[in-house]
């Protein structure tokens, strides 16, 4: 019996290792070939850093990076404020009529295929004559990021409710606002920040919606990568991809650090 269990276990671990190899194969290929000294991608010719060097001298690329960063910051700020207000009401207020409706409403952007979101926004903006500029794009990105900030902040507010620290503060004479400002907000702050980081990442990587509604002259990083892929294959993309991956991992690491529950530490 025990022998059988062990063998089943090791077969399963082998399978899991193979699956992770599948998931990481493209990333590994990208990493290795970003150092390859050849125009054509498939053969290893020698080590070079020149693809990375080119990135830093590509003015268009640096412009796209700037646009993406500004866009992601704006969208994350909007989504965090909206998310904090909404998740406070959902996590901390006594049950009220319509809470389920709000809940369902806020998960719609997650469930909707991005193509649908993109073309609807395009049709709408053109119909009501909202210019397709940075502002309208940032609003759309805030919408896509909103479910992420809400779920991150709501989870923390719910776990704080269970700790009843606010009740203790108010027993000691704090007003509700003081208890919120001095107890809840500082404790919720890491979750707010981690939600904002998720929102930032979502906005930074969004391609599909942006593809439909980015006006002429607005080039974000994913749009730039798309046009590089469309018009001419160059190993520069590999180098760029590695830099982006490093950035994403940094953001995710920050998010994990912040979203750790203090109670679980």
């Amino acid at each position: 019996m025990i022998g059988r269990r062990v063998s089943r276990f090791s077969a399963l671990s082998t399978y899991v290792a193979a699956l992770y190899a599948f998931l990481y194969l493209p990333l590994a290929v990208m990493f290795v070939f970003s150092f390859n000294d050849a125009r054509r991608n498939v053969v290893w010719k020698g080590f070079t850093l020149s693809w990375y060097g080119r990135l830093f001298h590509d003015a268009e690329l640096i412009g796209a990076l700037g646009t993406s960063l500004r866009l992601a910051l704006t969208a994350a700020a909007i989504a965090s404020v909206l998310g904090l207000l909404a998740s406070y009401a959902m996590a901390r207020h006594p049950a009220f009529k319509g809470r389920q409706t709000y809940n369902a409403l806020f998960s719609v952007p997650l469930m909707m295929p991005e193509v649908v979101m993109g073309v609807s926004l395009l049709a709408f903006f053109v119909r009501v004559r909202i210019p397709l500029d940075f502002g309208s794009l940032a609003c759309a990105h805030a919408l896509i990021a909103l479910p992420y900030t809400i779920s991150s902040i709501r989870a923390r507010l719910l776990s704080l409710r269970d700790s009843r620290l606010e009740d203790a503060a108010m027993d000691l004479g704090a007003t509700e606002w003081q208890a919120f400002r001095k107890i809840t907000l500082p404790l919720a702050w890491p979750a707010i920040f981690s939600g904002a980081l998720l929102a930032f990442t979502v906005s930074f990587e969004d391609f599909v919606t942006t593809f439909f509604i980015a006006g002429i002259g607005i080039v974000t990083m994913p749009i730039k990568v798309y046009s590089m892929m469309k018009f001419g294959v160059t190993p520069e993309i590999n180098a760029l991809a590695c830099c982006l991956l490093a950035l994403t991992m940094l953001l995710l690491a920050g998010n994990r650090l912040l979203s750790r529950d203090p109670a679980a530490r």
Binding site: P26, L27, M30, E205, F207, M221, P222, V225, Y226, M229, I237, N238, A241, L244, L245, T248
Partner: peptide, 8 residues
């Protein structure tokens, strides 16, 4: 990771 990059 950006899906464009993985596609590439």
């Amino acid at each position: 990771t950006s899906c464009l990059v993985a596609i590439y």
